[in-house]
Design a protein around this nucleic acid. Structure first.
Ligand SMILES: [Mn+2]
Ligand SMILES: [Mn+2]
Ligand SMILES: [Zn+2]
Ligand SMILES: [Zn+2]
Lengths: 165, 165
DNA sequence: TTTTCATTTGAAATCATTTCAATTTGGATT
DNA sequence: AATCCAAATTGAAATGATTTCAAATGAAAA
């Protein structure tokens, strides 16, 4: 629903990646989500379609996809990598209360490439952290009732984050 | 040597943080380094001055410092948190070959605060990743002979990163 | 000195990620 | 259809940063 214009097979084929059943399912799942899912979220979301899918495959496949520019690996969440199927340059906001990662569209582009100070730039990430709109609205202490990755993040992580503040 | 204008005791006192022997040593160590050290680097660097210092104290103290704006916690290295005693807004570059983290001074500021899309912004990070100047110079495969955190990162991390590419 | 409370410490637990060897898969060849 | 082979997948074990937790220490107050 995001950028599934081209069939998934083509996205893989163009890059010489064999369109395995697992790879197609993983690619579909990660492109289908705007929530910047973590490995465990993808694993959970795919358990019906690919019951035998291992986390090891998820790790290696997502690294493969990232290497070929099919997904972006976000490191804004200190606990776990989050993946983004939307590869156009944009910034990210991480809510330290509910764990949600949201897209931001700002002036400063993250698409910059080339060299800076002689260093070869391959990736640019603009990370903002704070308290998201809906957490601000749902005042008080406990995070507002979110779903998906945000909620998943909530129930886990003992006090690592996403607790009171 | 960086921003030790004020005595360290004052930096803590202003914020109501009791100037413990450990805290003063940790603060001195993190302010003294431009290498954006990880916990293990600080632990190693302090073993002479504070032989009994535990990593637990380092974790909790650095979190305390970060909460009070004395240091910034960088999440650009996927393996471990790196700490920055230079709190003025600036961007960071992470060399995926040798692990070094370098300061960048660019136009787009990271000092932005306030709200975006209704989200309350508390932290802004500009992360660039690629291959650093000296790694580019020292062509070939193995990383150029670096020191400090970069080297430390090298000898560790089996193939996690900092290997060939 | 005795009490009290914050800080420090080390050991154990947690958990994301990596490693690795074995199994499975699917295409090519016979 | 049967065989072969390299790539892909899998699960279990290892790794290592970070957190948890309860005991030990320290320092100020009574
Ligand atoms: Mn995004
Ligand atoms: Mn810096
Ligand atoms: Zn939130
Ligand atoms: Zn380098």
């Amino acid at each position: 629903m995001i950028s599934n214009e081209k069939p998934l097979r083509a996205l893989l084929g163009e890059r010489g990646i064999k369109p395995t059943y697992q790879r197609l399912a993983i690619l579909a799942e990660v492109l289908d989500r705007r929530s910047h899912p973590a490995i465990k979220d993808l694993h959970f979301g795919l358990k019906t379609k690919v019951p035998t899918l291992s986390k090891t495959t998820l790790y290696s496949t997502l690294e493969l996809f990232a290497r070929h520019g099919l997904v972006r690996t976000l490191r804004i969440d200190p606990v776990e990598a989050r993946y983004d199927g939307w590869t156009a340059p944009h910034h990210h906001f991480h809510c330290e209360r509910c764990g949600a990662i949201l897209d931001l569209n700002l002036a400063c582009p993250t698409g910059r490439r080339g060299c800076i100070d002689g260093h070869e730039i391959r990736e640019v990430h603009g990370y903002f952290r704070g308290v998201c709109r809906s957490c601000l609205a749902g005042a008080a202490s406990s995070a507002s009732p979110k779903r998906g990755a945000a909620r998943a993040a909530l129930v886990k992580h003992p006090s690592r984050r996403y607790q009171h503040a």
